[in-house]
């Protein structure tokens, strides 16, 4: 019998039916970011929950003075700022993935993602401004001020 030679699998070079794309690494970067931010967020969030809910009187201690006392220190300002940005970017990217998975119509997908990006941008900008423009002893305030404020 004459040998019917069959080309060994994939010997002719592989033709994947994929688009060449723009050569952008965005999805790869996003994938890596989800993992890096996740590791850092474990520390930031567990620390946040421990200090705010477990120490002292726990949630009962939280009032204006509690927040003012924390943000008087650059340490907690930086902590909360990092937590805000990382959690928002991580959460936004996660929800983007979910929208891409379930919203099949192009229009629906675009609309949902536009709403997502606007909402996230508003929250990140608002949160950042609040951390940096915060006044622990606002003029005219009388209740729940931290102890370091001058007597009204």
């Amino acid at each position: 019998m004459s040998a019917n030679t069959i080309a060994s699998p994939r010997s002719g070079g592989i033709k994947y039916n994929r688009n060449k794309g723009s050569g952008s690494n965005f999805e790869m970067a996003a994938w890596l970011f989800m993992r890096l931010s996740g590791v850092v967020l474990v520390v930031l969030i567990f620390g946040h929950l421990f200090v705010n809910l477990m120490v002292g009187e726990g949630i009962h201690a939280i009032d204006f003075g509690f927040v003012a006392g924390k943000w008087a220190s650059p340490f907690w300002q930086v902590w909360d700022l990092a937590m805000l940005w990382l959690a928002m970017l991580h959460g936004t990217n996660g929800v983007r993935t979910i929208i891409n998975d379930y919203a099949e119509r192009d229009g629906t997908r675009m609309t949902l993602k536009t709403v997502l990006y606007i909402a996230s941008a508003v929250i990140i900008v608002l949160g950042t401004l609040v951390i940096f423009t915060f006044d622990p002893c606002p003029a005219g305030a009388v209740i729940d001020l931290p102890s370091f404020c001058p007597a009204p």
Binding site: F64, V67, M88, G91, G94, I123, L126, F134, P138, I143
Partner: peptide, 22 residues
């Protein structure tokens, strides 16, 4: 994620007044 959106909004009340936040 949805809780975080609300949580940033409620914390932002510290910028309105101590009464509002508390």
């Amino acid at each position: 994620f949805f809780f975080l959106l609300v949580h940033v909004l409620d914390t932002s009340l510290v910028r309105v007044s101590p009464e509002a936040y508390t």
